[in-house]
Amino acid sequence: MKKQSALDRRKVVAALLADRGDALVVTGLGSPTYDTYAAGDHDLNFYLWGGMGGAAMVGLGLALAQPKRRVLVITGDGEMLMGLGSLATIAVAAPKNLAIAVIDNGHYGETGMQRAHTGRGVDITGMAKAAGFKSATTIRTQAALKLWISKFHRQSGPVFGDIKVSAVAAPMALPLRDGTAIKHRFRTALLGSKALE
């Protein structure tokens, strides 16, 4: 077993989004959605509360629709494991403006902290690399995180990072959860009056 990471998920996500600029953010259901909200609510956050396994693909559709904007997907290891095929699909589609950060605590935090495959030795960075991601990195330390954040925002994509965090649960922080309200808020911020045409 690898040593438990000391990185705190809330601090990691806050650091990932500290200089988000005009980036569009998609969050995977469960803790990454809460972490992103805790880092600061934003109209350009598409909080997913369902569709497990789909966060990265939502990011791909958004990245193709908005090629001039950076699209950041922040999701969990269990969510990413459910959509492993999408790593192949995204690598082949090769969107330059898409970056995926997996907040990896090695467990299913929402359902009782059962261990995930990532907590039993499965290397999703290796999978992303093998699929053909231009950049795929596992991050275990604060120093490595600091270096990777500039890649997350600026390196030509698709970019993948698996950030190993502590499995300690964070305090409750619940964003907007009505899907239609989230959609309208996001689209209005991005598209202006066209959002409701």
């Binding site: 598409f46 789909g54 939502v58 958004l62 699909t89």
Partner: peptide, 20 residues
């Protein structure tokens, strides 16, 4: 976009619409 499984396309097209 060629998919490995159809559900990927469903998720992708949610993102497309969010992006206009």
């Amino acid at each position: 976009v060629s998919l490995t499984s159809e559900e990927e396309g469903v998720a992708m097209l949610a993102g497309s619409w969010m992006g206009g």
